[in-house]
Protein backbone atom coordinates (compact mmCIF):
# COMPACT_ATOMS: atom_id res chain seq x y z
CA UNK A 1 0.00 0.00 0.00
CA UNK A 2 1.36 3.34 -0.96
CA UNK A 3 1.83 5.57 2.05
CA UNK A 4 2.74 9.21 1.80
CA UNK A 5 4.66 11.11 4.45
CA UNK A 6 1.59 12.11 6.36
CA UNK A 7 -0.94 9.34 5.97
CA UNK A 8 -0.94 7.38 9.19
CA UNK A 9 -2.86 4.27 10.09
CA UNK A 10 -2.57 1.67 12.79
CA UNK A 11 -1.94 -1.29 10.53
CA UNK A 12 0.64 0.71 8.60
CA UNK A 13 3.02 0.51 11.55
CA UNK A 14 2.78 -3.29 11.76
CA UNK A 15 3.17 -3.68 8.01
CA UNK A 16 6.24 -1.53 7.89
CA UNK A 17 7.75 -3.21 10.96
CA UNK A 18 7.35 -6.56 9.28
CA UNK A 19 8.76 -5.27 6.00
CA UNK A 20 11.78 -3.70 7.66
CA UNK A 21 12.59 -6.81 9.63
CA UNK A 22 12.27 -9.05 6.59
CA UNK A 23 14.51 -6.90 4.45
CA UNK A 24 17.20 -6.47 7.08
CA UNK A 25 17.22 -10.15 7.95
CA UNK A 26 17.45 -11.04 4.29
CA UNK A 27 20.39 -8.73 3.72
CA UNK A 28 22.29 -9.31 6.99
CA UNK A 29 21.25 -12.65 8.42
CA UNK A 30 23.93 -12.89 11.08
CA UNK A 31 23.82 -9.30 12.30
CA UNK A 32 20.52 -9.23 14.14
CA UNK A 33 20.90 -10.58 17.65
CA UNK A 34 17.31 -10.12 18.72
CA UNK A 35 14.05 -8.41 17.94
CA UNK A 36 12.24 -6.65 20.76
CA UNK A 37 8.62 -5.57 20.43
CA UNK A 38 7.07 -3.40 23.08
CA UNK A 39 3.99 -1.17 22.90
CA UNK A 40 3.90 -1.31 19.12
CA UNK A 41 7.53 -0.34 18.66
CA UNK A 42 10.07 -2.64 17.14
CA UNK A 43 13.72 -2.64 18.12
CA UNK A 44 16.33 -4.57 16.16
CA UNK A 45 19.22 -5.49 18.43
CA UNK A 46 22.26 -5.60 16.19
CA UNK A 47 25.85 -6.53 16.77
CA UNK A 48 28.34 -3.71 16.93
CA UNK A 49 30.50 -4.54 13.86
CA UNK A 50 27.53 -4.60 11.51
CA UNK A 51 25.90 -1.36 12.57
CA UNK A 52 27.23 0.90 9.85
CA UNK A 53 26.38 -1.38 6.96
CA UNK A 54 22.88 -1.93 8.29
CA UNK A 55 22.42 1.82 8.60
CA UNK A 56 23.67 2.30 5.06
CA UNK A 57 21.25 -0.32 3.81
CA UNK A 58 18.36 1.22 5.69
CA UNK A 59 19.09 4.63 4.27
CA UNK A 60 19.67 3.66 0.66
CA UNK A 61 17.06 0.98 0.10
CA UNK A 62 14.12 2.23 -1.96
CA UNK A 63 11.39 0.63 0.05
CA UNK A 64 12.81 1.76 3.39
CA UNK A 65 14.40 5.19 2.82
CA UNK A 66 15.35 6.06 6.36
CA UNK A 67 16.59 9.55 5.70
CA UNK A 68 16.21 11.14 9.12
CA UNK A 69 18.36 10.19 12.07
CA UNK A 70 16.16 11.31 14.90
CA UNK A 71 18.37 10.63 17.85
CA UNK A 72 21.24 8.62 19.28
CA UNK A 73 20.52 7.66 22.87
CA UNK A 74 22.97 5.89 25.13
CA UNK A 75 21.79 3.76 27.97
CA UNK A 76 23.58 2.42 31.04
CA UNK A 77 22.17 -0.92 32.04
CA UNK A 78 24.18 -1.46 35.19
CA UNK A 79 24.22 -4.14 36.70
CA UNK A 80 23.34 -6.00 33.50
CA UNK A 81 26.02 -7.10 31.09
CA UNK A 82 26.82 -5.79 28.46
CA UNK A 83 26.62 -2.59 30.39
CA UNK A 84 26.00 0.03 27.74
CA UNK A 85 23.62 0.16 24.83
CA UNK A 86 23.39 2.76 22.09
CA UNK A 87 20.00 3.29 20.46
CA UNK A 88 19.66 4.76 17.00
CA UNK A 89 16.20 6.10 16.24
CA UNK A 90 15.68 6.23 12.50
CA UNK A 91 12.72 7.71 10.69
CA UNK A 92 11.68 7.74 7.09
CA UNK A 93 9.91 10.90 6.01
CA UNK A 94 8.68 9.64 2.60
CA UNK A 95 7.49 6.30 3.93
CA UNK A 96 6.43 7.43 7.41
CA UNK A 97 7.89 4.64 9.45
CA UNK A 98 10.25 4.40 12.34
CA UNK A 99 12.70 1.81 13.61
CA UNK A 100 15.09 1.60 16.50
CA UNK A 101 18.48 -0.09 16.29
CA UNK A 102 20.03 -1.00 19.59
CA UNK A 103 23.72 -1.86 19.81
CA UNK A 104 25.02 -3.44 23.01
CA UNK A 105 28.40 -1.99 23.86
CA UNK A 106 30.72 -3.81 26.24
CA UNK A 107 33.69 -1.49 26.34
CA UNK A 108 32.85 2.22 26.27
CA UNK A 109 36.23 3.06 24.78
CA UNK A 110 35.49 0.86 21.77
CA UNK A 111 32.07 2.06 20.75
CA UNK A 112 30.30 1.64 17.44
CA UNK A 113 31.57 3.21 14.28
CA UNK A 114 30.33 6.69 13.58
CA UNK A 115 27.48 7.05 11.10
CA UNK A 116 28.38 10.65 10.31
CA UNK A 117 29.04 9.84 6.66
CA UNK A 118 25.42 8.77 6.30
CA UNK A 119 23.73 11.43 8.38
CA UNK A 120 25.99 14.43 9.19
CA UNK A 121 24.02 15.24 12.33
CA UNK A 122 25.49 12.10 13.92
CA UNK A 123 28.73 13.92 14.81
CA UNK A 124 26.88 16.31 17.06
CA UNK A 125 24.73 13.61 18.64
CA UNK A 126 27.69 11.31 19.25
CA UNK A 127 29.60 14.13 20.93
CA UNK A 128 26.73 14.51 23.35
CA UNK A 129 26.79 10.78 24.07
CA UNK A 130 30.51 10.86 24.74
CA UNK A 131 30.26 13.91 26.95
CA UNK A 132 27.58 12.54 29.21
CA UNK A 133 27.97 8.76 28.99
CA UNK A 134 31.55 8.24 27.89
CA UNK A 135 31.05 5.97 24.88
CA UNK A 136 33.69 6.67 22.29
CA UNK A 137 32.64 6.33 18.65
CA UNK A 138 35.25 5.09 16.17
CA UNK A 139 36.06 7.55 13.45
CA UNK A 140 34.61 10.56 15.22
CA UNK A 141 37.54 12.73 16.22
CA UNK A 142 35.60 15.72 17.42
CA UNK A 143 34.52 14.13 20.68
CA UNK A 144 34.88 16.91 23.24
CA UNK A 145 33.16 18.40 26.23
CA UNK A 146 29.92 19.96 25.08
CA UNK A 147 27.79 20.48 28.17
CA UNK A 148 30.33 20.31 30.93
CA UNK A 149 33.32 22.55 31.51
CA UNK A 150 36.45 21.46 29.65
CA UNK A 151 38.32 20.22 32.68
CA UNK A 152 35.50 18.09 34.06
CA UNK A 153 36.35 14.50 34.79
CA UNK A 154 33.88 11.70 34.66
CA UNK A 155 30.71 11.11 32.74
CA UNK A 156 27.66 12.15 34.74
CA UNK A 157 24.92 10.02 33.21
CA UNK A 158 26.57 6.78 34.21
CA UNK A 159 24.88 4.94 37.00
CA UNK A 160 27.92 4.90 39.23
CA UNK A 161 28.35 8.67 39.06
CA UNK A 162 26.79 10.40 42.07
CA UNK A 163 24.05 12.98 41.69
CA UNK A 164 26.10 15.65 43.42
CA UNK A 165 23.46 16.48 46.00
CA UNK A 166 24.49 19.45 48.11
CA UNK A 167 23.41 20.11 51.63
CA UNK A 168 20.49 22.52 51.85
CA UNK A 169 20.98 25.53 54.10
CA UNK A 170 18.62 25.16 57.04
CA UNK A 171 18.82 26.80 60.42
CA UNK A 172 20.98 24.09 61.97
CA UNK A 173 23.78 24.45 59.44
CA UNK A 174 23.25 28.10 58.54
CA UNK A 175 26.50 29.44 59.96
CA UNK A 176 28.62 26.69 58.48
CA UNK A 177 27.39 27.23 54.94
CA UNK A 178 27.23 31.01 55.23
CA UNK A 179 30.92 31.14 56.08
CA UNK A 180 31.82 29.73 52.69
CA UNK A 181 29.94 32.36 50.71
CA UNK A 182 31.62 35.51 49.38
CA UNK A 183 31.01 38.75 51.25
CA UNK A 184 30.80 42.20 49.65
CA UNK A 185 34.43 42.86 50.45
CA UNK A 186 35.58 40.19 47.95
Amino acid sequence: MEQGPMTPSATHAEESNRLIREKVEAAFPEAILDVYDFRGERTLIVAQPHLKEICQFLRDDDALQFNLLEDIVADDMLPDFPRFAVNYHLYSIPKNHRIRLRVPVEDPEEGPETVASLWPIATWLETEVWDLMGIRFQGNDSLRRLFLPEDWQGHPLRKDYPLGYEQVQFSFNWEAIEAKKPSPQD
Partner: peptide
Protein backbone atom coordinates in the same frame (compact mmCIF):
# COMPACT_ATOMS: atom_id res chain seq x y z
CA UNK B 1 18.56 32.00 45.37
CA UNK B 2 19.20 28.45 46.48
CA UNK B 3 19.51 26.08 43.55
CA UNK B 4 15.77 25.65 43.17
CA UNK B 5 14.42 22.36 41.95
CA UNK B 6 17.86 21.22 40.87
CA UNK B 7 20.14 19.90 43.56
CA UNK B 8 22.74 18.12 41.49
CA UNK B 9 26.24 18.20 40.08
CA UNK B 10 25.56 20.78 37.43
CA UNK B 11 23.90 23.73 39.18
CA UNK B 12 25.47 26.16 41.61
CA UNK B 13 23.27 26.03 44.70
CA UNK B 14 22.43 29.65 44.93
CA UNK B 15 24.21 32.44 43.11
CA UNK B 16 25.35 33.83 46.46
CA UNK B 17 28.10 31.22 46.32
CA UNK B 18 29.59 33.31 43.53
CA UNK B 19 28.56 36.93 44.05
CA UNK B 20 27.19 38.75 47.11
Amino acid sequence: SCGGVFNNYAIVQGVDEVVP
